[in-house]
Nucleic acid binder design. Structure first.
Lengths: 207, 207
DNA sequence: ACATCTATGTATACGCTGTCAACATTGCTG
DNA sequence: CAGCAATGTTGACAGCGTATACATAGATGT
């Protein structure tokens, strides 16, 4: 009953199938053109079947955004782990991972941050907490860097916000197409994001 | 025939009225929920009337985004002008103006950068050129700061991209609601963006 | 001044969308 | 094995973007 979807009345794992198919669809057409009915067709069920698993279109989008935040947390944490004991390098690689993930999933990134999700009517705790996890890693990283005497002794939240903003801005500019020609390719992006963050480390002013 | 819209067959200035009303609508409901038909109703015309002035819904959105980029260019340039001869202060104030404008117009900002506009099918030169104007001001500013020996002698485009990313990221995080509680109020934002940018100037690392 | 052309607005229709309500099927539980 | 809860289907509805055909009016050339 789990494998073949076309033969049984009950699908078996519609929930998961819907999310996977939705991600694919959003990748293809962008979050704006994504429709529930097309999703249902792609999953091989009737156009109201998704409502047994998600209250809303919005709820479905929230679920997808959550998976996005989860992989974001994983990737950045993974990147940081590889340079344990070197906070500066950790910060840079975390940022690079952030931007690279955004470049690999521009449409999902837009879904996560672009205003497609109606925050008013969504459970919100869920989404917020998963997003916070990603931020918390950054905070920890900076805290340890401060204690090692490498990072400036400013308010931790401020330092975290600055690095997050920098990386997030670069990611959004890339996924939004504002940097056409400047940063399209994968390796360009890696290089660029590393440079930009080094700049944040060292500062723009002449010393 | 210009004033009273309900009495004449021809509206007189539908084009302008539509854009103004659309901005209002988007402010109210967000770019996602905005609809052409509701706009037409609000403007007091039939639901196909807008097609005499805009090829598409997309074309209308592009026009609105353009006005957004224009005021962005104005505001940032204006902010920079007030501190002519002090590139560091200019850079900071430009950024503050950027973030403040985004905070004042979160929905329009999302429209401009969030992926609501279909870049494939839009004239694109228009939108790109207006967006470039805003960026060009930043480039000039940095160039002059480099020549005064205040800014680090890195590639200008890199410095510009870094500052743009920082400011843009902060703006997007705020408008996206990711910073609830941290930066909601107007003065908080002014303060925060100035601090964050100072950090970019001075660098995160201990010297 | 008047005929005509063009710009602008309307009416109607189509297929697509999200969502609700009523019904059908299935697997689980007592 | 009876019945209940979970899951899927059908049909309907209003709202959406947009194409087509038509109506009106302002501008233009004679």
């Amino acid at each position: 009953m789990n494998k073949r979807s076309g033969e049984t009345y009950h699908h078996g794992n519609l929930h998961g199938t819907l999310i996977a198919a939705a991600i694919e669809l959003i990748r293809d057409k962008g979050p704006n053109a994504f429709s529930l009915r097309e999703l249902a067709k792609k999953a091989g069920v009737s156009h109201t079947a998704p409502y047994r698993h998600f209250k809303d279109k919005n709820a479905l989008l929230v679920a997808i955004a959550e998976t996005g935040f989860k992989t974001l947390t994983e990737r950045t944490r993974n990147a940081a782990m590889q340079f344990d004991g070197d906070p500066k390098r950790q910060l840079i690689e975390t940022g690079v991972a952030y931007v690279e993930l955004a470049l690999d999933n521009p449409e999902i990134t837009q879904l996560m941050f672009g205003g497609f999700i109606d925050m008013e009517k969504c459970p919100k705790e869920n989404l917020d907490s998963t997003a916070d996890n990603a931020f918390q890693g950054l905070v920890n990283l900076i805290e340890s860097g401060k204690q090692s005497g490498i990072f400036r002794n400013e308010e931790t939240e401020l330092l975290a916000l600055a690095t997050w903003s920098m990386v997030h801005g670069l990611a959004m500019l890339i996924t939004g197409g504002q940097l056409c020609g400047i940063a399209d390719e994968q390796d360009q992006v890696r290089n660029l994001s590393a440079k930009v963050e080094s700049l944040l480390m060292e500062g723009i002013l002449v010393r």
